[in-house]
C-alpha cells in the first residue's frame, strides 16, 4: 500500500483521543467540553477511515459517515442545553453548577 502507513493514522487518532479526554476532564466551560468530546468522536473517525484503507473495504468509511451525523445531532442538543442554562442564569462555568452535589 502506498502513501502514509496505517501506524501514523493511528498515532494521530490516539493523540487526538487523548487530547479530547484530557480536555473533557480539565476544561470547566461546557462549550469547550463539547468541543473536546467532538475531538474524541472525530479521532475515532480517523481510526475508522485508516482501518478501512488497511482492510480495503468500505465498512469503516460508512461508519465514519454515520458518526459524523450522530455527532452533529449530539452537538445540537448540547448547544441547545447550554443556551437554556445560559438564559437561566448567565453562568458558563460547570463548577458553579452545584445545586446537585455529586
Amino acid at each position: 500500500m502506498s502513501g502514509v502507513p496505517l501506524f501514523w493514522y493511528l498515532m494521530l487518532s490516539f493523540g487526538l483521543f487523548g487530547l479530547g479526554l484530557v480536555g473533557v476532564m480539565r476544561r470547566r466551560n461546557p462549550l469547550l467540553m463539547l468541543l473536546a468530546v467532538e475531538l474524541m468522536l472525530n479521532s475515532a473517525n480517523i481510526a475508522l477511515v485508516g482501518f478501512a484503507r488497511q482492510w480495503n473495504n468500505t465498512d469503516g468509511q460508512i461508519f465514519a459517515l454515520v458518526v459524523m451525523a450522530v455527532a452533529a445531532a449530539e452537538v445540537v442538543i448540547g448547544l441547545g442545553l447550554v443556551v437554556a442554562v445560559f438564559r437561566q442564569r448567565l453562568a458558563l462555568n460547570v463548577d458553579e453548577m452545584s445545586s446537585l452535589k455529586g
Binding site: 483521543f17 461546557p30 468522536l41 481510526a47 482492510w55 461508519f63 449530539e74 442545553l81
Partner: peptide, 25 residues
C-alpha cells in the same frame, strides 16, 4: 441534570466508538 448527562453520555459514547473502531481494525 440534562447537561451533565449529555457531557458524560457523549464521553461514554466516544469511548465506546473508539472501542468499536479498534474492533473493526
Amino acid at each position: 441534570s440534562g447537561l451533565k448527562y449529555l457531557i458524560v453520555g457523549a464521553v461514554g459514547s466516544s469511548i465506546l466508538l473508539y472501542g468499536f473502531a479498534l474492533l473493526y481494525g
